[in-house]
Structure formats: C-alpha cells, structure tokens
Design a protein around this nucleic acid. Structure first.
Length: 289
DNA sequence: GGCCAGGTGATGG
DNA sequence: CCATCACATGGC
C-alpha cells in the first residue's frame, strides 16, 4: 500500500466535487469520510485507488492510496487530471472577472472539472445520456454498466469495447435503450475493435481535429464530441452550446425572455475563453443547486 | 396527461 | 445546405 499527498491550489471546492459525483449511482462516494474510489485500467489491469480529502477549501489536501507500487506514478497523474488538482482558480477567476455573470462565478469558483477515467467511458456514457433527463440517464447507464461492466472492490468499471461489440440490439432494448441508441453503442464498439476508430490518439489532437475524427461516427454529434473533449480529454475551453441544460441555465442567469439558440450561446464563449469548460460546469451545476 | 430531457440521423426541399 | 421529424421512455 502506498500513499501520496497532493495539494491543489486554493480554493478547491470539495463539496461540489462530492455533490456532483454523488448524483451518479455508479460512483463510490463516502461523503462522511470524504473518500472516493476510482477505477483505473493500466497495462490492461484493473486497479482501484482511493482518494481522501483531508484538508479544507483554503488548505486543500488529498491522499491518494493504491496497492501496486509500479503503477503509482501513472495513477497519481491520472487522478490529478480526473479531479483537476492542477486547477488554477486565480487565473480562472481573473478571466471571469471581466464577464457580467459574476453571481454565478462567485457561487461556483473553485469547482473542479470532473473527468471520466478514460476516453471510451466518456464516449459511452455520453451516448447513453443523449436526449434523456439526468435521472433516467443515470439509471440507464447504471443498468448497462452493472450488467456488462465489472465490479472490483465495490467499484464499477465500464465494459470495454471488446465486450460491448459483441452485444446485440435486442438485449440493450431490454434495458430500455432505444433501438438507435443501442445501434450507436454497439456500432462504435465494433469500430474500436476493428481499429476503424482509435480513441487513444485523440489525446494528441487539437479540438478541431477531434471534431473531424469523431463527427463522422454514427451516433456522435457535436454535443457528444464536446462532452468527450470536456470529460474524456479534459479540455478547458469547451462550451456545449447546443446543450439544452446550458441553454436553460443561461436563460436563468441572464434572465432572457426565451431560451437562447446555439448561436446565441456561442457568442458568450469568447468572454469565457480559455476556461469556458468551467462555466459549463457551473451552469450545469446551477440547475441542481 | 402533456411537455420536456445535459441529441442525432434520416428525410425532403 | 437548412428545417423538420421520429425516436423511446422516464420524470414532473
């Protein structure tokens, strides 16, 4: 067993981190002891790591624990990225200072970007989440992962493409997937298995290149690409302008007469660059408190 | 009961 | 190239 302490910049809003993860029934969240457990695949092996908060917003500190010492460096790096421990709230704040949405920023500054463990999990999850209310989206993902994924030490791993590629539409229909959603999920997995689609190389791509790579894939539209960029690749300047939740949140915070269109949302983005992903998180979070 | 949900592809002009 | 529509089902 090894332990590594990490010290994010302050303020790090740990309550928002735990609150958001708690919405997902697949997450292992121990709110009383401020412990998360994280599933990571490394060298094709599944490992479970614990992340415990032991500081305060003003003096944030996390302890990361794992078993196998040979994976320590990579695990720590990936967990730092997943929970945005390198976040620099003062740069973010000074960017958002100039904008006219200060009440939102004041309320959520210090909330981290919260990533998925890997790009395939991010893609899979966001396809399942397309066009569903959040409650049902989480339920559907839960059914899928608890049926086809793997549980290690009470922590769920999403199934890999090899497993998903062998499913058929009918069995996903039984979980209450739509026919088309089932086709998307299976078709993408088959593309990955046949090497028509390589998600690993996306890490080195620009945002534009990621669009060009993913948009032609059946089942992947602009919203899904943006969610993969934000949650899978952890890009900091993503604002999913077509997202109905973002649109509703902007409607509310700017007290607009009607819900803004995608183009109208896009017009806000330059004010929030290069950190618009944080505004996206704040806006989503503001819909549930 | 009707409208909406952290969309997308297919269709028809 | 753009507008419209079907898709499935839960949540409220």
């Amino acid at each position: 067993m090894w332990v590594e302490k990490v010290f994010p910049h302050k303020p790090y809003n740990v309550d928002r981190l735990f609150r958001r993860l708690s919405m997902d029934p697949l997450q292992y969240v121990d709110d009383d002891n401020k412990i998360l457990k994280v599933p990571l695949r490394m060298q094709n092996e599944k490992g479970v790591y614990s992340v415990q908060f032991i500081g305060t917003d003003e003096q944030p500190c996390f302890e990361i624990r794992g078993k196998d010492i040979k994976n320590k460096a990579e695990a720590v790096t990936r967990i730092r990225e997943m929970f945005d421990f390198q976040m620099d709230p003062s740069s973010i704040y000074s960017t958002f200072r100039k904008t006219n949405i200060s009440s939102l920023v004041e309320k959520y500054i210090g909330m981290p970007l919260i990533g998925e463990p890997d790009v395939y999990s991010a893609l899979l999850k966001n396809i399942i989440h397309q066009q569903l209310n959040m409650k049902f989206a989480y339920t559907l993902t839960y059914r899928f992962v608890t049926k086809y994924g793997t549980k290690v030490e009470n922590v769920w791993f999403y199934p890999q493409a090899e497993v998903v590629s062998k499913l058929n539409v009918e069995e996903l229909r039984e979980l209450q997937f739509s026919k088309r959603k089932a086709e998307y999920v299976i078709g993408i997995a088959q593309k990955i298995v046949s090497s028509d689609l390589d998600l690993e190389k996306l890490y080195t791509y620009t945002n534009q290149e990621v669009y060009e790579e993913l948009l032609p894939v059946r089942g992947v539209g602009p919203w899904t690409v943006e969610c993969v960029l934000l949650f899978g690749l952890r890009r900091k300047d993503i604002l999913p302008a077509g997202d109905v939740g973002i649109q509703n949140a902007i409607l509310k915070w700017y007290q607009l007469p009607t819900k803004p269109t995608k183009e109208e949302v896009m017009a806000y983005k330059e004010n929030w660059s290069p950190y618009s992903s944080y505004i996206s998180m704040y806006l989503w979070e503001s819909l549930s408190g």
